[in-house]
Design a protein around this nucleic acid. Structure first.
Lengths: 366, 366
DNA sequence: AGGAACGTTGACAGCGCTACCAGCAACGAC
DNA sequence: GTCGTTGCTGGTAGCGCTGTCAACGTTCCT
């Protein structure tokens, strides 16, 4: 009767096939493309598999089919709140699909990214999600040569490798500064940490907006390569004040810095927004409950992750999206910290492409 | 001459062996246990592999060896800061090892955990990291039947499945309340959200400490099953005040809630710590730069993740740790928000087992 | 009626690697 | 000098699954 029940005691596809009275290959097809079977065999295999508690052996499948069902994800940080929202979206979208997520942390190093990319590609992933558009030339070449679909996330740019989903950090920063102009502010400082490419583009947006208004002054810009933190926000703001005591607003490259600036103002008894207005970036949850509430630029991080993974899976399965590049936009959420003499929010200023949303799901927190 | 260079163009172990002039099996051994080879063959295989740019096929390895090099990690949340620190530790420890991390989100559901566990176990992981000690009976049975090492993280308890690393949330809460007693507070409220098992044990610790001092009053406790947030901290505190206007301190089950309480106090012009003292839990970065600075219970999250993964890898490779259960302790970090009439910190109160650290690495942020 | 077209099924031959066991040389113990 | 013993190496035989191709029955077209 041939071998049965290998020593490991695991149920194999052959056992399922035998119980169902079909050939192993037919049973195999059931798990990959059930529609190809006649209804009769389909139900027979299905109940046989259930009865035996069959679980496919992924390693054998990967070896035989010469491809894996792994989606590689390269992100620069595991702790940054921004990425945890994106990740949650990615994991949510992958759940229920056959694909599993393989995560790696580039730690904001494009060399590390290149190394990890080489590692991933060697295992022939089903798809890849990479952060940003600033890869090394070598990485770029590998991505273009890759046989799998690829999504770049977090920002949009002119030259996608394959698919792309994000928003313009440059435009978002310009909108934040424009909002401060509207509120009557002129001496607007910029505070930034880490200065990864996306923060750099926010700075570029700030600089261009300030130059357009003939208000740019290099002394208004304080940045550091140090990783961001609330405490650092206070420290950078202190530096800024030392250089330019006459500022009337601060645009912070992220919300942690903004919170640090707020606390520092409180410590120095500087009125917000009376003496100094504050605008953050990302619109983390706490911004809405700070005192005063803090203005920020809302970005659709969860949605970005979820849509990226969903698009990728569609593409893996041969259904390429009609729109390979998605701009999810942004929105300036006006709150007390930047209002001229009003108490709270008004309708926000929307990013140009905010309407381009592919999936509009509530960003339920887990 | 037999087949060479399979159609996929990938270099196989056989090619490496041929170039090195050894049998495939010897080449295979080089990658698994180099010490078993003579020095001459070892260098020959090594240079051959480098010359050809050989990358092992993990699927084939897993199939042939009947085991994977995957470490499964089950955590309840992807967004909670607490877990992102733990995760960073786990990823850092796995880096450079042969093991890869497979992450899944249980969303605080033990049923979901059971389902994921079944999924993981079916693929024979090399090891498993699970959160907490409150599994379903079914999950518990699966874990005990599992053939791989397992580490439970986040807390300590009486009955480890295998290895365990964490601290006592109960003791930590008692220490926080004891600190508030020391500062002269008596009507101490408790504010908690999500109420997962660990938060529940913090509540238990609070209750026992209050009862020991004959100060417990059910009306001092405000909790909700809603996921935690800064805004929620303010809302729960508002409820608490409505019930018990006479409180003189609040112990918050986490730092987000504490920040929400602080903002709510500011909104209501309640002096902190003058009228109400605040103590949080976890000691997230922002606690030290709030105004006033916020007292919290420091926990070693990054270290916990890193040590858990390191212990697990050691155990997988047959070197079981001499100490399978590690208590990483905690520390009450006293700051302005709870000081009686001092300005800032004093030496903290340490958890009993704080000295038990296995690895004492700086928690570098990424 | 003959044949093409389609849908459904199965046989065969690996995918790339490692477990297992055997073989061989070198060495020391009796 | 015979017998283990140790250290290193190789041959054989799969691991569990799927790609490819052929074969079959049925339907539809000409």
């Amino acid at each position: 009767m041939g071998r049965k029940r290998t020593k490991s005691g695991k149920i194999r596809l052959a056992e399922v096939a035998e119980l169902a009275g079909v050939s192993p290959i037919t049973a195999s097809r059931f798990f990959r493309n059930p529609e190809a079977l006649s209804v009769a065999k389909r139900t027979r295999v299905e109940s046989a598999a259930k009865e035996l508690g069959y679980v496919p052996n992924l390693a054998a499948r990967a070896l035989a089919s010469q491809r894996t069902e792994v989606i590689g994800v390269l992100i620069p940080s595991l702790t940054n709140n921004v990425f945890s929202d994106v990740l949650r979206g990615i994991y949510d979208a992958s759940e229920g699909s056959r694909y599993s997520i393989q995560l790696s942390n580039t730690r904001y190093s494009i060399l590390q990214e290149e190394k990890l990319l080489r590692l991933f590609l060697a295992q022939k992933p089903a798809g890849l999600i990479v952060t940003g558009i600033d890869q090394t030339a070598e990485s770029r070449a590998m991505l273009e040569a890759a046989e799998c679909p690829i999504v770049q996330i977090m920002e949009t740019g002119p030259d996608p490798v394959d698919m792309m989903i994000g928003f313009s950090h440059y435009d978002a920063a310009r909108a934040a500064v424009a909002h401060l102009f509207e509120q009557g502010h002129r001496r607007i400082g910029f505070v930034g940490a880490r200065m990864d490419p996306r923060v750099q583009r926010r700075l570029d947006g700030y600089v261009s907006a300030m130059k357009d208004a003939a208000l740019f002054d290099q002394r208004l810009v304080v940045t550091t390569a140090t990783p961001t933190s609330v405490t650092l926000g206070g420290a950078l703001f202190t530096d800024l004040l030392a250089r330019e005591p006459e500022i009337d607003a601060v645009f912070c490259a992220n919300d942690d810095l903004a919170l640090g600036v707020l606390f520092e103002c409180r410590r120095r008894e500087i009125a917000v927004p009376g003496q100094i207005a504050i605008v953050g970036f990302n619109d983390l949850e706490f911004m809405a409950s700070a005192v005063p509430t803090l203005t920020s630029v809302r970005t659709n991080r969860y949605e970005m992750g979820k849509t990226a993974a969903a698009m990728l899976i569609e593409a893996i399965e041969g259904r390429r999206p009609e729109q390979p590049v998605l701009d999810l936009g942004f929105k300036v959420i006006e709150r007390q910290s930047s209002s001229a003499r009003r108490s709270d929010s008004r309708p926000g200023v929307s990013g140009a492409a905010a309407a381009n949303k592919m999936i509009a799901l509530p960003s339920s927190r887990d």
